[in-house]
């Protein structure tokens, strides 16, 4: 039943894409945009599935540029091609652009206002919690093989704990992880991912 609404064949209107990304852009305090997109695009609207979304998150982080705008372009492209990507990106940057204009013109007035700084710290803390929620769903999706778990832990430790540079870590992890995930039995055929999953 919910499968029907989630088919990518169904065209999402450009206006709907703009509206969603505008709201995501405006509310994107503390840098936690991925959970917002996950909620708006997958949980509420069913425009995509987690299994299409999560690799997009990795792709967006690996490519140069801001993760959130990259992810908006990725989602927009998936939904409506070039127009979708352009609309998603524009929608996402409209709000921040306008706020930035206002802030740059007036920031001297409020920069030292302590209660505002405290409130922003609290908002940031809650925003980190939202990212954690997305992280947990990504962790769950990665629990399908020992190697997958090893890749996840190695990436976390290398980047999060050891603070190794992203490019080198990704250059090692991506080929390793992708080779291990290559569907077996029928290299040139049409692998069925669901069957693969059930067999595993």
């Amino acid at each position: 039943m919910s499968e029907a609404t989630a088919t990518p064949a169904q065209k999402v209107s450009l206006l709907a894409i703009y509206k969603v990304f505008f709201s995501i852009g405006v509310m994107s305090f503390g840098g936690g945009l991925v959970p917002w997109m996950q909620r708006e695009i997958i949980t509420l609207r069913g425009w995509m599935k987690d299994e299409d979304f999560l690799p997009g998150v990795a792709l967006a982080q690996i490519l140069p540029g801001v993760n959130s705008t990259n992810l908006a372009v990725f989602i927009g492209q998936k939904l409506r091609g070039l127009a979708g990507a352009g609309v998603a990106l524009t929608g996402m940057l409209t709000g921040p652009f306008l706020v930035m204009i206002a802030a740059t013109a007036t920031y001297q007035v409020f920069i030292d206002y302590k209660p505002l700084q405290v409130a922003m710290t609290g908002i940031a803390a809650a925003a980190i919690g939202m990212i954690l929620r997305t992280g947990v769903s990504a962790v769950k999706a990665s629990l399908d093989s020992v190697l997958s778990i090893a890749v996840m832990l190695a990436t976390f430790i290398a980047i999060g704990v050891l603070k190794w540079p992203l490019i080198q870590v990704v250059a090692v992890m991506v080929p390793l992880s992708v080779a291990a995930a290559w569907p077996r039995g029928g290299a040139s055929g049409k692998p069925d991912k669901d069957r693969e999953k059930h067999n595993a």
Partner: peptide, 10 residues
Amino acid sequence: GLTPIAAGLI
């Protein structure tokens, strides 16, 4: 292959 990397990065 990218899903566990995304998990680690997030």
